[in-house]
Design a protein around this nucleic acid. Structure first.
Lengths: 341, 341
DNA sequence: AGTATAAACTTAAACGTTTAAATTGTCAAG
DNA sequence: CTTGACAATTTAAACGTTTAAGTTTATACT
């Protein structure tokens, strides 16, 4: 049913030359005469030729595709972070004529299978690993397979190639801001302990607190998952006994859940208690009250990760992008007394 | 650097047979003796053989890949709807050993180029079109190219293959609920007019209103984009003069924006004014107050769309999935007086 | 005139599969 | 002991590119 594809052979027949000539003409090789090159280009255009990338891939032994496997808990609970990361990667990949293969898997055996598929069957030239974990088997897997990869993270991941948003300075900014707002009892809802992000975040929070002479100390609470639900639960616990006057959350969704927990217990957000998130997802601006949060340029993260990966693959020879991306604090009503005067 | 791939040729050499024998043995053809088949299977496993899918694709003239191009306004404004749709598609595709190629483009010339790439260069065997528009050039393009596609929509899209969430009954449920809550002045914030969803939604709302003898009539307001920002703006206008006592929005994000607008103007949501969304994104449950909304099983939509596409491609011979998916209303605080007693 | 050089091509092999058709050998039936 | 059938395997071509190496023809230099 589809009109059969035009191949180099067809063009060769049409212009009465060999397939090799046509191929070289179209690729702009120097050893084809300018007239012939023009003729072939025109004929190709007239016949509606488009190269068969599969054949090209076989010949070149490159797929010109990269992969991304989203670690999602379920379809519904997909994190806005990933969407932003994905669009960043997708745009950059498209700019360089690369395909982006996407899978969405729950961490576990399914996920392993997805990596096996992409890596072992060489469906892609490289992968981007999002949200690295402690002793991440994905990193180990790809390393032993010699498949290029780049980690999109919140801290360096030596000795592996990575791009990261500086979570440390982000969290520091949040704490400094809260101190300026005269908050003295700051709690931190930390990422799940199996994430690399956990250690970085907890350390950063600890350092930030230690650097503030006004503060006695901080309370840290962990999550099993960065979701509203978990944020709600964690905040409930924090508020149950000697409630803090500020909460910093490792993720906006968590902050939103925490805010709701506080509200349900009768706290006035921004007055009785301040809440600060991390990420600045689009919704942060539209929560009630609007959420103060650390803006993470997630699509830039994806874009840089993609560029670094393409450089590692050898597909581009631009200078590599900066590895570290600085986040910044966006102050809104959930932490700012002035809004309440 | 990567350990050179094991090919059929290597296995053939190892067992002293021809490449054809090995190929057929591994594919389970009947004309290879059972012993030889076993030997080859074992040898292949020992040598760590994995088929080269590019070669296979060239030979079979199929890519075993499908494409999805997300129409996004920007990385940051990516719609949770697409994420859910994507995971639904991705999971189903993976089940059938298909790759999913994803691109994210702003509607316009970039988007065209993305379709050209995937379609003309035959990088995929088929595509899923999300959020169909009026006189959708994407549909026309794929039709003339004879590339299989399926539309994921909110209504049938004759004569094209489609899967849809029944927006009509969803909106009807919302209106009926509001009437039961004694709302009499119901406004509707409709989708952008360039979407097919627009007509369906407006018609459905009109019919729903007409079927309720208690109601005088409904007010309809349009958007340029289904975002919080636009929802905010639209609601501001609605509330400026003779405010309605209920607002139905075509999208949860829009509803969230509308809710905020109402709150900013001093309305008490759920009391002075009811707000109902469409979609039931995860956040709906965690807004303040929680949002009453029409639950759209978006990942099911993606899953069914994928199955239908695979069937159209001829990759599976299951009976096609049901084309229509029924949404249901989830009542929460933003529309329910009981919460306020 | 003879030789080197260059320009403009063509030939042929390769990438790793799949599969229709051909080949070889074995065995049973006539 | 010939014929035919069948099982097990091989041969060869094909999928559509790319590219190293080879060929032809024209031009320039000695």
């Amino acid at each position: 049913m589809p009109p059969t594809e035009v191949t180099l052979k067809d063009i060769a027949r049409a212009v009465g030359k060999s397939v090799a000539t046509v191929s070289k003409a179209l690729r702009g090789h120097a050893d084809i005469s300018p007239e012939m090159r023009a003729l072939i280009a025109q004929t190709a255009a007239e016949m509606g030729y488009t190269p068969n990338i599969t054949a090209r891939r076989l010949q070149k032994k490159r797929t010109d595709a990269i992969g991304l496997i989203l670690p999602v808990q379920s379809a519904r609970r997909a994190d806005p972070f990933f969407t932003e990361l994905l669009t960043g990667i997708a745009n950059e990949a498209a700019r360089h004529n690369f395909d982006l293969l996407v899978s969405a898997r729950t961490p576990g055996s399914d996920e392993r299978e997805a990596y096996r598929r992409l890596a072992a069957e060489r469906r892609v030239d490289g992968l981007i690993i999002a949200q690295p974990r402690r002793n991440d088997w994905r990193i180990e897997f790809l390393t032993t397979r010699h498949l290029p990869f780049v980690v999109a993270a919140h801290q360096p991941v030596p000795p592996h190639p990575a791009v990261w948003v500086n979570a440390e300075t982000g969290i520091l900014q949040a704490v400094v801001h809260l101190v300026e707002e005269n908050r003295r009892q700051i709690a931190f809802i930390a990422p799940p302990t199996d994430l690399l992000f956990h250690q970085t975040a907890v350390r950063a929070f600890g350092n930030a607190i230690a650097a503030q002479p006004e503060l006695s100390g901080g309370i840290v609470s962990d999550l099993t998952e960065m979701s509203q639900k978990e944020g709600y639960r964690a905040a409930q616990h924090l508020l149950a006994e000697s409630p803090p006057d500020a909460i910093v959350a490792c993720h906006d969704l968590v902050a939103l859940g925490a805010m709701k927990a506080a509200q349900d217990q009768g706290f006035e957000i921004g007055d009785d208690i301040a809440v600060v998130g991390f990420g600045d997802i689009l919704l942060a601006e539209y929560s009630q009250p609007p959420l103060t949060t650390v803006h993470r340029p997630t699509d830039t993260l994806g874009q840089h990760a993609c560029r670094l990966l393409l450089a590692a693959i050898g597909a581009i020879e631009d200078s590599p992008p900066p590895a570290e991306i600085e986040p910044w604090l966006v102050v809104r009503q959930s932490s700012n007394l002035e809004f309440w005067v």
